[in-house]
């Protein structure tokens, strides 16, 4: 299987998988709270339904129309570049850690600009809060990723994964554990889950992410929610792959790649279930307590780097 074919598979996987993971998390939450909950495929069906509806567009129409495209293209590009199911190209693949980070950041910028373009109070509020949190998340994210990269002596994700698979003992090292813990907080913040943001709230005092996307409807909303689901799918599967790199295909043959895909799905579902259980057990933090959480994640990341340097 060639590199570009695998990329295409990964984009598809992240798109469908992201929607399914959203469904899984809703299901887990429902079950934990004693409800039956909607079927896991519900988000998929909803996107398909909204796609056929007309799009109402208010002020800033051209920006509102463009935002879902930017979000989908940047997230899709990140999903194509990053190795998730397999590392099949030899040598440096261009799958740099920072490319993925900054592609995702571009999606956040587009969402925030969309929020401001509507010219409503809510859009600006959401954009302001989301950008503040994203600025505070970035140090933890970059330092946490650096902690994973330094022991493998590469910032290329493909190389990192290949070397991690070859030396599985590194996964139990304190540096790795701390870095993954810090990245987990980052992923929770970036995907807007509890305790940072509540994806199902529409209360103005607590909304962060939802406030930016209030003005989308119909087809625009379908594309936008697909983009958000892809973002979630990408972040979860990337974290799962980095945490436990077992099963990542290192050759292009069909069987290992298939195994890699299946294992990737399993790891991501486990992670999503875990995050959903955290959500059930935690209340939303006050907005100005979130920086404390992110600072804690940042310190974990610094500890990860330092411990990695000390204990090597």
């Amino acid at each position: 299987m060639s590199g570009s074919l695998l990329s295409a598979v990964q984009v598809l996987l992240v798109a469908v998988g992201g929607l399914l993971l959203t469904g899984v998390m809703a299901k887990v939450r429902a079950r934990a709270e004693g409800r039956v909950g909607a079927p896991v495929t519900q988000p998929l069906r909803e996107v398909a339904k909204w796609l056929t509806r007309e799009s109402p567009r208010a002020g800033g129409a051209s920006v509102l129309a463009a935002v879902p495209y930017v979000l989908l293209v940047t997230t899709g590009l990140a999903a194509a570049v990053v190795p998730l199911a397999g590392v099949v190209t030899a040598g440096s693949s261009g799958a740099d850690v920072l490319i993925a980070v900054f592609l995702l950041l571009t999606g956040s910028l587009a969402l925030a600009l969309g929020g401001l373009a509507t010219g409503t109070a809510f859009g600006g509020m959401g954009a302001s809060r989301a950008m503040t949190l994203s600025a505070l998340t970035e140090p933890a994210l970059l330092v946490g990723l650096a902690a994973l990269a330094v022991p493998q002596r590469s910032m290329d994700l493909a190389t990192i994964l290949r070397r991690a698979v070859a030396h599985p003992a590194g996964m139990a090292s304190p540096s790795h554990v701390l870095a993954i813990a810090s990245l987990l907080v980052v992923v929770i913040a970036e995907t807007g889950r509890l305790p940072v943001d509540n994806p199902s709230t529409h209360l103005e005092l607590t909304m962060i992410h939802e406030a930016m996307v209030l003005e989308y409807g119909g087809r625009d909303w379908a594309l936008l929610s697909l983009g958000q689901a892809m973002r979630l799918g990408l972040l979860f599967s990337l974290l799962a792959t980095l945490a436990v790199p077992w099963g990542v295909a290192t050759s292009g043959a069909a069987l290992p790649v298939l195994a890699g895909v299946v294992l990737l799905g399993a790891k991501s579902v486990v992670l999503a279930t875990g995050v959903a259980l955290i959500e059930v057990r935690s209340a939303k933090l006050r907005l100005f307590r979130v920086p404390e959480l992110l600072a804690a994640a940042f310190v974990l990341a610094i500890l990860a780097v330092v411990v990695g340097v000390v204990a090597r």
Binding site: R53, P56, R57, A58, G76, L214
Partner: peptide, 26 residues
């Protein structure tokens, strides 16, 4: 990817309605 998204979008509704901003009902 832009091409793919355009294809996906063309599969859906192409009607765009100009409205006022909803803004939670204000």
């Amino acid at each position: 990817l832009v091409g793919l998204v355009v294809l996906l979008a063309r599969g859906g509704s192409r009607v765009v309605r100009a409205t006022r901003a909803w803004a939670c009902g204000r």
